Simulated scan of single mutants.
Amino acid sequence: MSESDRASVRRAIDFYRELDAMVKDTDLLASYATANNEDGTRRVKNPSILAMAHRMRATNIGLAMKYSEMVWSVERMEEMQEAIASEIKRADAETGERVLSAMKDVQSRWNPKRNA
């Protein structure tokens, strides 16, 4: 698979849509593994399926946390870059413009859509 193919695949994946589908599947599996008693309480009718649903739920939570951490890290990195560029620009406008341009060049290679 070429780099452009990998980039297309990454763009095609909607993380939140996929996560939502996995959560719904997990809930469906968990509801299959339990039954409602006449008094409104729930009982386990298939412990191994319920355990599988709990493992799936833990996996979904782990994926959501990793995604959140990645987004947070990217945002902090962008804030840091802007702060550095602003300070350099205040000291020397020409140098600041060169640094900002170089940073945008690097950023555009990491995420071409962002600077479009």
Rank of each mutant, 00 (worst) to 15 (best):
R43M: 05
S48C: 04
H54E: 15
S48V: 04
S101R: 02
A64Q: 14
Y67T: 08
M56K: 15
P112I: 00
Y67W: 12
Q107E: 06
E79W: 06
K66A: 15
E18G: 09
V23N: 08
V44R: 02
E38Q: 09
S101Q: 04
A102C: 09
K113Q: 07
E82F: 09
L28P: 02
T59D: 12
P47V: 02
L63Y: 03
R98W: 06
A91W: 01
M52V: 05
M22R: 15
D92H: 11
W110Y: 07
M56Y: 08
R42D: 07
A93L: 12
R98F: 10
W72T: 14
R90S: 07
D92R: 07
M103Y: 11
D20Y: 08
Y67Q: 15
T26S: 04
E75S: 10
S101P: 02
E38N: 06
S68A: 01
V71Y: 08
E87V: 09
S68R: 05
R76F: 01
V44W: 02
D20Q: 12
L28V: 11
E79V: 04
D27W: 09
Y67C: 05
A85K: 00
R76P: 02
E87A: 15
G96H: 06
V106D: 00
S68T: 03
A91L: 12
T59N: 13
E69M: 13
R109G: 00
S86T: 15
Y67A: 08
W72Y: 14
L50T: 07
T34K: 00
M77Y: 03
P112W: 00
G62H: 12
S68W: 09
A35Y: 09
G40W: 04
E82C: 09
I88E: 01
D25I: 04
G40N: 02
M56G: 03
S101A: 12
S68Y: 11
S48D: 10
V71N: 10
K66R: 15
Y16P: 03
A64L: 13
T95Q: 15
T26G: 04
A35V: 05
Q107H: 06
M56F: 08
M22I: 04
N111I: 00
V23T: 11
Q107W: 00
E18P: 08
V106I: 01
L50S: 05
L100F: 08
A58N: 06
K45P: 08
A21V: 11
K66P: 07
R43S: 11
A53V: 02
L100N: 09
Y32M: 12
A35L: 08
L63P: 00
M22F: 11
N46A: 14
A30L: 10
A53P: 01
L29K: 03
R98D: 10
A35M: 10
S108N: 02
R57V: 06
P47H: 01
L100D: 10
A33G: 08
L50M: 10
T95F: 13
S31M: 03
A91M: 11
T95R: 15
A35I: 08
D92A: 08
E87C: 10
H54V: 11
G62V: 10
D25F: 03
N46G: 06
R57Q: 12
S48Y: 11
R76L: 02
R43W: 00
H54S: 14
D25G: 05
K45L: 13
T26R: 00
G62Q: 12
R55H: 11
R17T: 15
R43N: 07
R42V: 05
T41G: 02
K24W: 10
D92W: 08
R43Y: 02
M65K: 14
E75K: 12
S73Y: 01
R76N: 06
K89C: 07
N37K: 15
V23G: 05
